[in-house]
Simulated assay, not measured.
Amino acid sequence: MRPFDYRSPTDAAEAVRSVAGDPTAVFLGGGTNLVDHLKLGVVAPGLVVGIAGLLSTEIEEVGSGALRVGAGVSNSELAADHRVRDRFPVLSQALLSGASGQLRNMATTGGNPLQRTRCVYFQDVTTPCNKRDPGSGCSALGGWTRNHAILGASEHCIAVHPSDMAVAMTALDARVHVLGPDGERTLPFVDLHRLPGDTPERDTVLEHGELITAIDLPAQPLARRSAYRKVRDRASYAFALVSVAAAVDVRDGVIVDARIALGGVAHAPWRARRAEDVLRGSEASDRSYLAAADAELADARPAEGLDGGNAFKIPLLRRTLAATLRDLVREDAP
């Protein structure tokens, strides 16, 4: 165990100043990810700044149908909220598909999107990893790649983002409120996470010391007709091999609008804009669903590996997207 200092500030602004002023400092919220990394030796902060109790734990109405979720709201509370279940069922389903009940009780809305990859090489400090130690190399390349990226990867990193909630938030056009040393700012959730490029050590666009304070869910009628489908190796407490968050507006057998995001396939939650474009104005049929999947996966690049690689993710995701859309459209039928 490496020693570190601990600080318990009185408000969020003080917490931000504490972390921003020390390059070795980190925030500690629910601790469901950071504590694991401390035990594994993945991180060794000089200062840990506790923020439990400093951020809003309220889910507020902000306009006709829109919600503002405080960063301190637990995953369990968010999944159970009747407004979320009614207006944004994809989000409730995504949250309930993640981790265990005990972890959902601790994990927070602000912390969940910032959890780091579960790549085994990232978590094994005896192996080279550009995300953990920039410039050391990527042990996943040619290694065990079954759980790795097929979209947006680079020669420096093929890890995937693990959050289920983040995939749903991406599909819902959520917006993120951030407090930093230079004040407050708001950004689209879809812009929060980064693809690896040549700096895979940076998971998000947040600067050191910036803290998520709330996430807005804009009112969208089509979000009421939404769902999350997750394919994994076991029925619970497992990360996605692939996942789909989808919302559709279907009228007279035609898809008027759609929102789709994918999980388990990239370094960031993947907004499937090509698939959305194909679906809009198309007949609500398997032919359209599969055409949308094919358009989105046209640039997919599976990784080869000692375990046979992950090319299976392409047909698996194709079928998963089609099944998700088929069920949503079936629900929409009179």
Results as ranks from 00 to 15, higher is better:
150 I>P: 02
172 L>K: 05
134 P>T: 07
133 D>E: 09
197 G>C: 04
201 E>W: 12
208 H>C: 00
226 S>C: 10
203 D>G: 04
181 P>C: 00
196 P>I: 03
198 D>C: 10
166 A>M: 09
215 I>E: 08
164 D>W: 08
203 D>K: 06
227 A>T: 14
211 L>K: 05
138 C>N: 03
160 V>Q: 05
164 D>V: 08
136 S>E: 03
176 V>N: 00
220 Q>D: 15
155 E>W: 02
176 V>P: 06
230 K>Q: 03
142 G>Y: 11
214 A>P: 06
176 V>H: 05
149 A>L: 04
205 V>M: 00
168 A>V: 08
208 H>E: 00
170 T>E: 06
195 L>K: 13
195 L>P: 03
135 G>P: 04
186 T>L: 10
177 H>P: 09
186 T>Q: 13
177 H>V: 05
215 I>Q: 07
169 M>A: 08
142 G>E: 11
174 A>N: 10
204 T>Q: 00
133 D>R: 10
138 C>F: 09
214 A>L: 08
219 A>P: 15
232 R>W: 11
219 A>M: 15
161 H>T: 04
145 T>L: 04
206 L>N: 01
175 R>D: 11
168 A>D: 06
198 D>G: 08
158 I>L: 06
135 G>F: 02
171 A>H: 09
189 F>A: 02
207 E>W: 03
218 P>Y: 13
162 P>D: 02
169 M>Q: 11
134 P>G: 06
164 D>C: 09
181 P>M: 01
191 D>A: 11
203 D>S: 07
165 M>I: 08
159 A>G: 06
132 R>Q: 02
228 Y>L: 12
142 G>D: 12
197 G>K: 07
218 P>V: 11
140 A>D: 11
169 M>E: 11
149 A>Q: 05
157 C>V: 04
147 N>G: 10
231 V>K: 09
163 S>V: 09
225 R>M: 11
171 A>S: 06
181 P>Q: 01
192 L>E: 02
176 V>G: 04
224 R>K: 13
194 R>T: 04
148 H>R: 04
232 R>C: 13
207 E>D: 12
136 S>V: 04
182 D>K: 07
187 L>V: 08
157 C>P: 09
184 E>G: 06
222 L>M: 15
162 P>C: 00
178 V>P: 01
205 V>F: 00
